[in-house]
Design a protein around this nucleic acid. Sequence first.
DNA 1: GTTGAGCGTT
Length: 91
Amino acid sequence: MVNIYAGNLAFNMTEADLRNMFEAHGKVDRASLVKDSMSGDSKGFGFVEMPNDKEAKAAIAALNDMDTQGRKMTVNEAKPKADRSEGRDRY
DNA sequence: GTTGAGCGTT
C-alpha cells in the first residue's frame, strides 16, 4: 500500500478524475480530493492510495511534474497526516 | 491555491 500526494492540481478536477489518472497506471484503492468543507471548492491537492507498490511508483513517476492546465503538477509519496483531532484553534 | 475532518455551540 502506497499513499500518494498529488498537488498543484487543476481546480476543476474532481475525485473521479484524480482516480482515473492513477488507475491508468494501476489499481487505486482510494482517491480523495481535498476541498473546503463549506464552499466545496477544491484546495488544489489530493491523495491516492494504491495497493500495488510498483504500480504506485510507476504512477508517481508518470504523473509527477507533468504538464497540466499550463502548470506542472506535483505527485509524490504522501507524508503522514497531521493529528488535528484535538481541535482547530490551537495556537 | 501544494500534505486530508467537520460545519455546529461543548
